[in-house]
Design a protein around this nucleic acid. Structure first.
Lengths: 156, 156
DNA sequence: TGTTTGTTCGCATGATTTGCAGATTAGGTC
DNA sequence: GACCTAATCTGCAAATCATGCGAACAAACA
């Protein structure tokens, strides 16, 4: 179940190559992890995943690559409630729903939002609008699934 | 130009007293600073203001008092783009507009938002919704006021 | 004035992120 | 395949933001 919104590792490799950047094993690994990851991982979470497959990879390199991708517009960044920055491989215009129980962050398609109905505040020209819902996700709300409810609350 | 939305220092003193908490000079000072401050100060900004009036006050005390007020529901917390937590004396239901130029954070009344038109994401029960506009405020957008445009960009 | 208990303060610590410099390596050249 | 060079990776120091902890202190009350 990989993310259809982020570019494939092959595409990112091509992008890097076209920019004169080198294709290192570390970068290739991170490209893959981001493509497989439809969640909103922190740099540290990606570092943990990467370390399992490439022992010795540096957290610094993870940060560096994520920053590079962000500056290239291939990755988004979001933060909730003062926690660590989360990287968002979904480049489509969308918003987020954060579960108070398990910390899961779900994407909310812009289609679901009647954004045009949001009038502008006085004397302000918004270039972007972000909406964050806080609440309880279906899995945590469902009594029948309480037994296998995810408990890894990722909130700060 | 004090904030009409936050409780007055007198009210907060009463609230603390009723909870069996002590009324210290540090707390009284912070109550006043919050009441006068319609902006969205960080703990450090309040510490700086407080230090000018009460040299020797501890940053730790500022954090402690702000946390207390937050837990008592007398203060809100907001964070933008991974920066430091900002404390919001405005307890009314509202949203925020962040200026990309000067970092000013303006409140956006809930009246301006057609919130009911925001449909719920699949299988999610939102208990709260926060909307953040990013853009350029009137002061920074106005060419005539470029000369005295605030330059204290508070973004991270 | 004295006692009690909550507060304040300073410091250590933790979490996240970035700066820096030396070691390493990808990618092109011969 | 060997070599060069610049980009990259890595480890560590350091900056920022926030909290834990314990000793010193002071508000509230008898």
């Amino acid at each position: 179940m990989h993310n259809e919104n982020v570019r494939s590792p092959e595409q990112l490799v091509e992008r890097f190559r076209s920019e004169g950047l080198k294709i290192t094993p570390q970068r290739q690994l991170l490209f893959s992890l981001l493509h497989e990851n439809a969640e909103h991982p922190t740099a540290d979470a990606l570092f943990t995943s990467a370390s399992a497959l490439m022992p010795g990879i540096s957290l610094r390199t993870v940060y560096q690559t994520l920053t590079d991708l962000t500056e290239m517009g291939e990755l988004g960044q979001v933060t909730f409630d003062g926690g660590a920055v989360r990287f968002d491989p979904n480049l489509t215009d969308h918003h987020h729903a954060v579960c108070n129980e398990c910390g899961t962050i779900a994407d909310v398609s812009i289609d679901h939002l009647d954004v045009v109905s949001i009038s502008q505040p006085n004397d302000f020209s918004p270039s972007s609008t972000s909406v964050v819902f806080h609440g309880v996700c279906a899995k945590c709300a469902s009594p029948s699934s309480n037994l296998d409810k995810p408990t890894n609350n990722q909130n700060k």
